[in-house]
């Protein structure tokens, strides 16, 4: 496949990426974003996929760890990010990235389902703060994930908020 530029989608934007996705980090830098550890215009949270276990074999500690990473940390992080945007009087973009709802165990099903409706809720609740909130729920880890993440974080997606998007057929 030929290499395609993202035409400076994120030029001048500071992005804080929490979690691990080489494709997203590479795409954000290629799109012109500066990756930062502190104050940012974009906050991306990538949750690691939990191990697949049948529900009756999950301990409560395992269940709680999945929900902490897949839901609670995301809400609290988004809340802090939105507060900092409001304090600066500027809009921003939140992007949650993780596995699809039914792809793994019941812990993931709970976390991703909650996250999807949280995305829809916060996208509207913070709309007039100029803060957009979207999710990518997929098992894909390649270039399309990076490009889609960069698009959703960019002003090109200014009219996309509260959206939960997949990539592959079974996402």
């Amino acid at each position: 496949m030929k290499r395609v530029e993202m035409s400076g989608w994120l030029a001048g934007k500071r992005a804080r990426i929490e979690g691990d996705s080489p494709a997203i980090a590479a795409a954000f830098e290629a799109a012109g974003a500066t990756l930062v550890g502190g104050e940012a215009d974009i906050w991306v949270h990538i949750a690691p996929p939990p191990k697949v276990k049948a529900a009756h074999e999950l301990t409560h500690a395992e269940w709680r760890a999945s929900l902490d990473a897949g839901l609670d940390r995301r809400f609290l992080g988004a809340r802090d990010f939105a507060a900092s945007c409001r304090a600066r009087g500027q809009g921003g973009a939140v992007l949650f990235v993780g596995a699809p709802e039914q792809a793994l165990g019941a812990d993931q099903a709970a976390a991703a389902g909650a996250l999807g409706n949280l995305t829809k809720t916060l996208g509207v609740e913070w709309a007039r703060d100029g803060i957009r909130v979207n999710s990518i729920l997929t098992r894909e880890t390649g270039d399309t994930l990076g490009h889609l993440a960069a698009y959703l974080a960019s002003d090109y997606a200014a009219y996309v908020t509260g959206a939960v998007v997949g990539i592959a057929l079974d996402d």
């Binding site: 496949m1 030929k2 395609v4 993202m6 829809k120 809720t121 996208g123 509207v124 709309a127 894909e140 390649g142 270039d143 399309t144 994930l145 490009h147 889609l148 698009y151 997606a157 009219y159 996309v160 908020t161 509260g162 959206a163 998007v165 997949g166 990539i167 592959a168 057929l169 996402d171």
Partner: peptide, 22 residues
């Protein structure tokens, strides 16, 4: 585009949150 070359079967909502207002 090849930028979204792995994407298929998706329905992307682009509505400024209109359908979610509640």
């Amino acid at each position: 585009t090849p930028l979204f070359g792995a994407m298929t079967g998706q329905v992307i909502v682009q509505d400024g949150g209109e359908s979610l207002r509640r």
